[in-house]
Each structure stands twice: as C-alpha cells, then as structure tokens.
Design a protein around this nucleic acid. Structure first.
Length: 475
RNA sequence: GGCGGCGUACCCAAGUGGCUAAGGGAGAGGUCUGCAAAACCUCCAUUCUCCGGUUCGAAUCCGGACGCCGCCUCCA
C-alpha cells in the first residue's frame, strides 16, 4: 500500500495517514444544518470528502464514512438563547421543525446524488440520537468537567484547561478569544468560554426532550461527539469539516469527548476551504442570496461539471466561483465523455492498456496521495487522453476507469449509452431524412435538419463518406 | 483588539529553494471536413502584487508595504 499524505490541522502539517485499524479508516464528516437548501459552497465541501474517501478506497482502504445532519439546536442569536434556525424556517413555512429538516435533508441528498457522491455508511440525524447525547453528557458530568445550572448543563472550560490543552486546533488562547465580547452570555455560566451541553428552561423552543436535568434540548457540539463515537468508536481516524469549525465547534468537540473518554478523539482533523464569490467573499447561508446546484443546471451545465470544477482546485484552497471556470469544467467533462463515447470496442475490451498509460496511472495516484492534489490529478487525466489521441492508440480504458473511481463522472455509463444508440421513431425519421439529403448533396436541407436535431437535444457529427453520429447530449 | 488565510497570464488553478513557471477555459493561426462539430498541431506569463534581504540560486525562505478575505455568535 502506498503512503497517503494529508494535512492534519492538529499538527498543522502534512502527515502520512496511519489508521488505527488498517485497512479500515473511520471517517466522520461534520454535516450541515438543514433549514435551507445547501449552497454550492456547502456542496463543495462534501464533494471534497468524497474525493478523500474515493482516494482512500483507491489505495485499498475500507472507509467507514459517517455524515451527520444537524436538525436541532442552532440559535439565531446567542449561543444559548434565541430562536433555533430550523424553528425559524418552520414558523415561516408553517411546518414542523422535523418536516423542515426532512425536506432540506432530502434536497441535500438529491444534490449529492446528482454529483455522484458515494453514499456514506451512515447518515445520522441529531434528533435520532438524543439518548446517546444524554449518556455522553452524563459521562462528562461524572468526570467533573461540567456543571448544572437552571439554564442548562455547561462544559467547564476553565477546569478542562487545567487538565488538558484547549486551543489545540485554533492555536488561540482563551484570553485571546474575547468570547462574549460581541454578545451577551448567560449569567449562569462561570466563564464566557463555557458552552452548553444541554439547554434547560427554554419553553418557547419547539423541540424538547426529557433528560436527567429536566426538559430541554442538546447543545450544538455534543451531537457530533455522541454520533461519531457511536458509529466509529471513541477514537476515530479522520474528522472533517469546514474551516469555520476549527476554532469553536471542533475545539469544543475535542474537549467534551476527551473529557468523557480520556482518549484522543480524532487522530486527524481535516478542514476544507471555502468556495468564494467574485470579490473573494465567502458564500454563506446567512448572507441571504446564495448559488445553488439548480442554478448551475439552469445555466445549461451538467451537475458533474460542478464536480469537476471542484476537482480542479485543492480542497484547502479557496475556490472562486466563476462562470468561466464552470464552463471550463464543462468542457473537460465533454472532452472525457467524448472519448468514452467514441471508444472503439476493441480498445474498451482490452484487458491491458498500452504501456504509455502506466506512467499516467502512477502519477495520478501520486498526486492524490499528496494531500489530495486533485487539480494535478485532473491535469494528468486530461493529458493521458490527449496523448492517446496523439498516438492514435486508444487502449487506455482500464486506466481511465481507474481515474474515474475518484473523478466520479460515470464514464462507463457514458460509454454504454454511446453503444446503445436506439432513437425514438421521430428522431430516427429526422436522422434518415438527413442522411438522404446529404447523400443527394442537399446540404441546405441537411443543415436545417441538423439545427432541428440539435434543438431537440441531439449532438450531430458528420464524418467522411456520409458517416454521421447522433447522440443525446445528456448521455 | 486577537487569530488565520490569500495575492501566479483575460478567467479558473497547480507549483512552496535549482530542469524551459503544470493543466484547463477563453483567444489567434493551421490540419481534417460539403459546412459545422469533435480531435490533433502551433502560438499565447524572461515572469509569479510591490520593495528590500538571505542564498551560488527564490514565485517558493525572512522583513516591510499595499490589496483582498475569513474567524473570534450560528455557518462547509
């Protein structure tokens, strides 16, 4: 097995991955809050984790991937008070919080499917794991790292600071954080840094559960600790999330998890950079208007063009969303598909590729194993195809299939669709008429028919001696 | 106030001490073609925001300036 290197926020350096129990790798991805559609920035993050997972699988690892969904607990204002964002949407749309969450979760999952994301082993929702969270909070309380007040159960950051280190990830000392400077915090908290494990006495909150401390609901961070440990064990290999989770969410997850178990929580923390707008500013839900996958398809682009667009930049670099960039990705997609469609049967059936392809295969894997350098990997894939055209030797299909295990653009499907070219009768009639016209050198009519076919979503390509191919665009 | 990141051609984007600064898109020219498309070939940054420094050698390291952005409240 070749070494796989990944940037670990814990050490701030690229490290070789050494899973706890190889060949299994446990991977937990911090999921989104489902009260609005997930924008392209959110989707980029999950596609990055899909690249990570597929690369690990390409290396022979068995990945146990869990993605959670936050369907309770986010405040609009203070960390402990105020209205839950899901509840806010629920009130606005006249639905129950669970209906809102289910609706946007389904939309999120549809988007990921359209982007050819592999299904995680487990999708877990916070509201299905309240019991697990309560058990974990009890362990933290028993460890003496939390205290109970009338407004909730809080994690005692000061006490934890004495025992271990906080600021492992953000490299910020507590004094530097100025927590509570911009917002009021609960007077019950011993320190503004303390965060809620369980919130009590918020009668207006719609989602409430019974607990040993009274009726209430869980704090935000506890769900990830509880669910990741439940499905992946007390120490997981890789924990992923957006950059924005480094200073608060993941810091707190580590603190509460390690307080409960006394063991390291995650061996590798991997964080992704943002998709940004044209001014370089972050695309975020709270900013009001934000681009969706539906906008990409409405612009006539394939969802997989967005996937390739993301593949074209490193997960740790900000990526600027630009129309020209998306169109470039669509061109790459068309280029690869075109090759797959027109692949001669004998080239597809070959069990061994031509020798020159071998070097590309190695370079591709090497690029990915170097902290997921997807843009380099993409360049290598495109170069291989160009090289095949140049040599007029297309026996590279096995290598392309190898690439597609991470690229995830479904080239096999494209090729199969190219083989089975059965057209609807009306389309076939137009094709036949066009063949006749060309045969009779009636090019004016032939061009008209080409325009009609193209308008119906077919691609028309003429070859020598009256040959022509017709393809559905979306195949 | 603190912490962090970024600035590579018209656009997106690799490269982080040493072969000619990846790759794609756009653009220009060409081959092929009834035309168009696709594909292929050629061209397209003596230079990496700017100014100093270290070094035999820097886009890459150090210092400074300018510009853009993120986080410290929920956010991928």
């Amino acid at each position: 097995m070749k070494p796989f290197y990944i940037y670990n926020t814990l050490s701030r350096s690229v490290e070789e991955l050494k899973p706890l129990n190889p060949p299994v790798v446990t991977l937990y991805s911090c999921g989104p809050t489902v009260y609005l559609p997930q924008h392209l920035g959110n989707l980029r993050t999950y596609i990055s984790w899909d690249f990570l997972r597929r690369t690990l699988e390409l290396n022979g690892y068995q990945v146990r991937h869990v993605i959670n969904v936050t369907d309770v607990g986010h405040m609009t204002s203070d960390e402990d008070e105020g209205e839950d964002k899901i509840e806010k949407t629920a009130r606005a749309e006249g639905k129950s919080p669970l209906e809102v969450a289910s609706f946007y979760l389904a939309m999120f999952q549809r988007d990921l499917a359209a982007l050819n994301q592999e299904q995680p082993m487990v999708w877990c929702r916070a509201t299905d794991h309240i019991g697990d969270m309560i058990v974990l909070i009890e362990r933290i309380v028993a460890a003496g790292m939390a205290y109970v007040t009338k407004s909730g159960v809080y994690f005692d950051v000061e006490k934890y600071r004495g025992a271990r280190r906080i600021g492992k990830l953000s490299r910020q000392s507590l004094d530097e954080q100025h927590a509570g400077q911009r917002l009021e915090h609960s007077p019950d908290k011993k320190s503004p840094h303390d965060f809620a494990l369980w919130v009590l006495n918020q009668p207006h909150h719609l989602m409430q559960w019974d607990s040993p401390w009274g009726r209430g609901y869980p704090g935000w961070h506890i769900e990830c600790s509880a669910m990741s440990m439940k499905y992946l064990g007390e120490t997981l290999d890789i924990h992923t999330g957006g950059m924005d989770h480094i200073p608060i969410h993941h810091e707190n997850e580590i603190a509460q998890s390690e307080s409960a178990t006394g063991r390291p929580f995650a061996r590798y923390f991997v964080h992704s950079a943002f998709l940004v707008g044209k001014s370089g500013s972050k695309i975020s839900k709270s900013a009001g208007k934000f681009p969706l996958l539906a906008d990409v398809t409405a612009a006539g682009l394939d969802p997989l063009a967005f996937r390739l667009f993301c593949f074209g930049a490193k997960y740790r670099s900000e990526l600027a969303l630009a129309d020209e960039g998306l169109r470039a990705a669509q061109s790459n997609l068309d280029y690869l598909r075109e090759f797959a469609r027109n692949l001669p049967a004998e080239a597809a059936a070959a069990t061994r590729d031509s020798e020159f392809a071998e070097e590309y295969r190695e370079r591709f894997l090497e690029a990915l194993n170097n902290d997921l350098n997807t843009p380099q990997a993409l360049a290598i894939a495109l170069e291989l195809v160009a090289e095949a055209y140049r040599r007029n030797d297309r026996t590279i299909w096995n290598t392309l299939m190898f690439f597609d295990r991470v690229l995830g653009i479904g080239l096999e499907k494209t090729r199969a669709a190219g083989q089975a070219a059965a057209f609807p009768p009306d389309i076939q009639a137009l094709i036949d008429e066009r063949a006749e016209a060309r045969k009779g050198r009636n090019f004016k009519r032939a061009d008209e028919l080409r325009a009609i076919l193209e308008a119906r979503g077919y691609e028309v390509k003429d070859g020598k001696g009256g040959a022509a191919t017709y393809l559905r665009r979306d195949a």
